[in-house]
């Protein structure tokens, strides 16, 4: 859900390429198969464009909205150094949104349209940001584990086929490595601190575990539709594969700190080499993504307020002779 391709289970695979010029389609697919990137003005199937816009735009919205629960803690972060670091992280996240919106713009959707679709609730963003950061420890768990999940998703997508998205992701991934280290450092400080600090970080982990398990989305149905998106290098890994990768990398690190993950069934299956876990509550996931989470209304209301408050400044700066052209790359 962060920036993974969305597959409508009702859509037929052949509908995806219906009406496309077979010669151009073959050239396009051959280019991708050779490992070459697609650039903005290249011919591309309509469905490729549509899926990429949806995916990159949602990814951009997630960066913007994700800055809200974390931004809550800037003024109350313990100590000057952590305030500076959190401010830098939040600025990075907003910068990521700018990079992603720009990449989506090259596909023909204006930034105004993307913002409109966000603030009216038409476009989605990552579901995790509909939960609140109750304490400082929540902000630390977000910075470590949510960013860890985002990195797995972004590293996979950076190997995709669309040039502008890959370039944005390369830049983003470099900055994410700071977020991850910063988050880990904060969690380690709490987990190795006083009993009160340990209790605080344990409670935050317990709260965030279900949204973390939801993060990569429900299992993908393997369909010919999925196969086409994978062949086009729009979808780079299945949701389950990314979740497994996350568990593999981070469960041992969480256990190292003596923290308890609230899932008695979580263990590595020695036979399959994969992690067994309790199936996440996907009804809860759907309920929250469709507006029923604790913070959905607040997130969008805050975005609308920000747009509205800045509007007069933008209007004052706008010159009549300006004309929009689609960015090059």
């Amino acid at each position: 859900m962060y920036g993974n391709a969305y597959i409508d289970p009702n859509e037929k695979a052949n509908a995806m390429i219906a009406g496309e010029d077979p010669i151009k389609l073959a050239e396009f697919e051959a280019r991708i198969a050779r490992g070459e990137k697609i650039e903005p003005k290249d011919w591309m199937p309509k469905e490729y464009r549509k899926q990429l816009i949806r995916m990159i735009e949602q990814h951009g919205h997630s960066e913007i909205i994700g800055a809200l629960p974390e931004g809550t803690w800037i003024t109350r972060a313990p100590g000057f150094k952590r305030k500076l670091a959190l401010m830098a992280k939040v600025q990075d996240e907003v910068g990521h949104a700018q990079l992603l919106y720009s990449a989506a713009e090259t596909l023909g959707k204006s930034r105004e349209d993307m913002i409109n679709d966000l603030i009216t609730g038409k476009s989605k963003y990552s579901n995790v940001f509909n939960y609140p950061a109750y304490t400082w420890a929540d902000a630390c768990i977000i910075a470590w584990l949510i960013d860890a999940g985002a990195i797995i998703n972004q590293v996979a997508n950076a190997k995709g086929s669309y040039g502008p998205y890959c370039r944005a992701l390369d830049r983003i991934c470099t900055e994410e490595s700071f977020h991850l280290k910063y988050g880990h450092d904060n969690v380690v400080t709490l987990a190795t601190g006083t009993p009160t600090q340990r209790k605080m970080v344990q409670e935050a982990l317990t709260r965030w575990w279900p949204p973390i398990m939801h993060f990569f989305g429900p299992s993908d149905k393997i369909s010919s539709h999925t196969e086409i998106l994978m062949r086009w290098k729009v979808k780079m890994a299945s949701n389950d594969d990314m979740r497994q990768q996350f568990l593999n990398m981070y469960v041992p690190k969480i256990w190292d700190l003596g923290l308890v993950i609230p899932d008695a069934n979580l263990k590595k299956n020695e036979e399959t080499g994969k992690w067994d876990y309790t199936e996440p509550d996907w009804d809860e996931f759907k309920r929250v993504i469709n507006g029923g989470g604790p913070c959905n209304a607040e997130r969008l209301a805050v975005r609308r307020m920000a747009e509205e408050k800045g509007r007069w400044v933008r209007a004052a700066l706008l010159r009549k002779d300006e004309k929009y052209v689609t960015p090059l790359a």
Partner: peptide, 10 residues
């Protein structure tokens, strides 16, 4: 809603 050019040119 934001109108055209609200976000300026690039």
């Amino acid at each position: 809603p934001l109108t055209e050019m609200d976000q300026f040119e690039t």
